[in-house]
Design a binder for these strands. Structure first.
Lengths: 140, 140
DNA sequence: GTACGTGCAAAATGTTTGCATCATT
DNA sequence: AATGATGCAAACATTTTGCACGTAC
């Protein structure tokens, strides 16, 4: 798949083995690994890789908008290669984040917050304890 | 205001000068300070206070549901004494978080995500670059 | 009086930085 | 050839921990 190389070129990013491996690893997943997790997973794909490069790369990818950094409450951020607006489930105990299954996720975007909670609880086998929604903005 | 003492007692929390000062300081604010910020602000109210106590207290208050820990992307969490579901604005550059003004906030809870963004941009003088919404859940 | 909270200093965790080396363009 | 990326180690920031002492109940 030479697709990623095109994508990188369009954003003036050099196509290094490390960056390709990192982006492709991230894009495959529907959970949202931390930098450390991504490092371990991607390391099996590319011979040489350091944690510093993981941070550098994720930062570069965020800058051009190919990756989104997801906030957590435990100090270790998580990353998502799907930059569209879509709902996440964050587990209270571990701070793990995962996508709402695609079909349900699309449905939620048509609902108001209270209805979302109802839907989630009735469709998935989880107990919703809260909801955090942040509008990300730029002052001007 | 001896109200806070009642609130604490109801949750089996001891009423120490430090805890009272911290909770009351936090409850007054519509921005959402980090532990460090809260430490500096509350320190003027109570003679003795350490940063470790700020962390211990915030943790205790979160446990009983009197405070909510807000996720950020820069490694330093923020705290909110309003535990109801309500929208926040997070600024991209600084990771500062603030409440959407009350009236607009209530209105947003009646809208679907796309409409929320429209409303925010037309009512406030900011540029929305994204939206992050997390359903907080507990596995079972 | 006992159980719990506080404060200090030290440790742990996650992330960033400086710089010499290496690879992509 | 030049510009930018990598990797190492050290620095940094935030949060957690262990423990002696103090305070609320």
């Amino acid at each position: 798949m030479t697709d990623t190389r095109d994508l990188f070129s369009q954003h003036n990013l050099r196509c290094t083995a490390q960056r390709l491996a990192l982006y492709e690893t991230l894009a495959e997943r529907h959970d949202h690994p931390t930098a450390e997790e991504l490092y371990r997973i991607a390391k099996s794909r590319t011979e040489k890789l350091s944690l510093a490069t993981v941070y550098n790369t994720l930062d570069a990818l965020c800058m051009v908008g190919l990756v989104r950094k997801l906030p957590t409450t435990n100090g270790s951020c998580r990353y998502d290669a799907d930059t569209s607006i879509h709902p996440h489930i964050r587990y209270r105990d571990t701070d793990e984040i995962e996508d709402v299954p695609e079909k349900l996720g699309a449905k939620l975007l048509e609902l108001v917050p209270d209805e979302m909670i109802e839907q989630i609880e009735s469709e998935l086998n989880i107990h919703v304890t809260g909801m955090n929604f942040q509008i990300i903005a730029q002052r001007h």
